[in-house]
């Protein structure tokens, strides 16, 4: 099954070169093990825009949609047979990016 792994960002400094290198190495391992689906870093929450397209005219407002001290700084989508495998893998991912992570299952298509 697939899991969304959110990177919980709770500090002001952005990723250091050491962290970036560690993340690259970790991603290589994910690919070698067949766990890689996708990953990306995100720009600051202040750059986001909220869309409400439910009315006649879409409404665009300055984001983020939730104000909080912690935000999502990036994410992985990984493939793992079960949660234990996902947790063990991403414990190393947390070490590599030096941030806390949240692992959340992605609903299977058609489930």
């Amino acid at each position: 099954m697939q899991y969304l792994v959110s990177v919980i960002h709770d500090k002001t400094n952005s990723g250091t070169p050491e962290e970036a290198r560690a993340i690259d190495e970790f991603n290589d391992r994910l690919r070698a093990g067949g766990h890689w689906v996708f990953a990306a870093g995100l720009a600051a929450p202040s750059t986001s825009t909220v869309i409400d397209g439910r009315g006649d005219e879409p409404v665009f407002t300055d984001g983020p949609f939730i104000e909080s001290k912690e935000h999502m700084a990036g994410f992985w989508i990984i493939d793992a047979p079960d949660l234990d495998v996902a947790l063990e893998l991403m414990a190393d991912g947390s070490k590599a990016c030096n941030r806390r992570l949240e692992v959340r299952p992605i609903l299977a298509v058609g489930a």
Binding site: M1, Y3, D82, L83, D84, V103, P105
Partner: peptide, 14 residues
């Protein structure tokens, strides 16, 4: 069920 918590004895390290 949803998060895929497995039915098995954990690995030796865990």
């Amino acid at each position: 069920a949803a998060a895929g918590i497995p039915y098995r004895v954990p690995s030796a390290s865990d």
